[in-house]
């Protein structure tokens, strides 16, 4: 087949590549022969109606879902397949753990560990994955909590934090493993409107201060426009339009993109 051979490594070698990826639940197709690639350091916004497959892309990258067909490559290495003794087999747990090392994710519902304090939430994984000693991990966690403006909440349990504070702890937790790729899955959808801004400010800082590749799934069109260098508009598991935000938001080529944006504006959002 030759599909799983690493692509050429040139200066423009993609950090993420989807090749004809399909994903279905029974007869329901979530992703349909999807191909696209992302360059290192790119800031991507994935937009589109609910159920268009945006979140599934992030979940496949985080290895929370497997693909039904096709291949996903991270730095030219297949995420879902591996070569063992010359044979091409589904990725083992060991292979997946190696691949996950470069990827971090922030969830819509935070998914904080309720039995751990904010500090423990951030410091747990670096210690368990053997990257840092306990003392180092603690220092690093304090720095990260400070960075998201929560140094004073280090010893609080998640149940005592507001939604915005929880999400900022979750961002610090994802950063603790120093990922090269950061996946942000509707990170403000579960927040009260007045708490959205504090989270988006943290993301804006990250965008400007790090060279992480970032993929943002969002319904906040205004933020997508400010955040992204490139926007992908999805519908029914396919990319309808792919371009810089100035173009996609102000002079979209496709009728579907136009009608989606009209609905969003009608719902009161700034674009």
């Amino acid at each position: 087949m030759g599909l799983h051979i690493a692509p050429d490594r040139s200066a423009e070698a993609p950090i993420i590549e989807f090749r004809e990826v399909g994903k279905s639940y029974g007869v329901f197709k979530v992703l349909d022969q999807l191909s696209f690639s992302v360059k290192p350091g790119e800031h991507l916004a994935l937009i589109g109606p609910s159920g268009s497959g945006k979140t599934t892309i992030l979940r496949i990258l985080m290895t929370l879902e497997t693909v039904t067909s096709g291949n996903v490559f991270i730095n030219g290495v297949s995420l879902n397949r591996e070569q063992k003794n010359g044979r091409d087999i589904p990725a083992s747990e060991a292979h997946l753990r190696k691949m996950r090392a470069d990827i971090g994710m922030v969830f819509q519902h935070f998914n904080l560990f309720p039995h751990k304090t904010a500090l423990q939430n951030v410091a747990l994984a670096p210690v368990l994955t053997g990257r840092m000693s306990k003392a180092e991990a603690k220092d690093r966690a304090i720095q990260l909590l400070d960075k998201v403006g929560l140094a004073n909440k280090a010893d609080e349990y998640p149940s005592r934090l507001s939604g915005g504070q929880k999400q900022r702890v979750a961002i610090a937790r994802a950063l603790a493993l120093q990922p090269k790729i950061m996946l942000l899955d509707e990170i403000t959808s579960a927040l009260d409107p007045e708490l959205v801004e504090e989270v988006l400010n943290v993301i804006t800082d990250l965008r400007n201060e790090t060279d992480m590749t970032m993929l943002l799934v969002t319904h906040e069109m205004g933020f997508a426009k400010d955040f992204a260098d490139r926007v992908l508009f999805f519908e029914q598991g396919k990319i309808v339009e792919d371009g810089p935000p100035s173009e996609l938001f102000h002079s979209p080529h496709h009728e579907r993109t136009k009608s989606f944006l009209r609905k969003v504006i009608a719902a009161g959002q700034r674009v």
Binding site: R97, R100, I103, G104, N111, T129
Partner: peptide
């Protein structure tokens, strides 16, 4: 899922 995203073993 959070544990997987933080690369913990099972």
């Amino acid at each position: 899922e959070a544990s997987i995203a933080l690369n913990l073993t099972r």
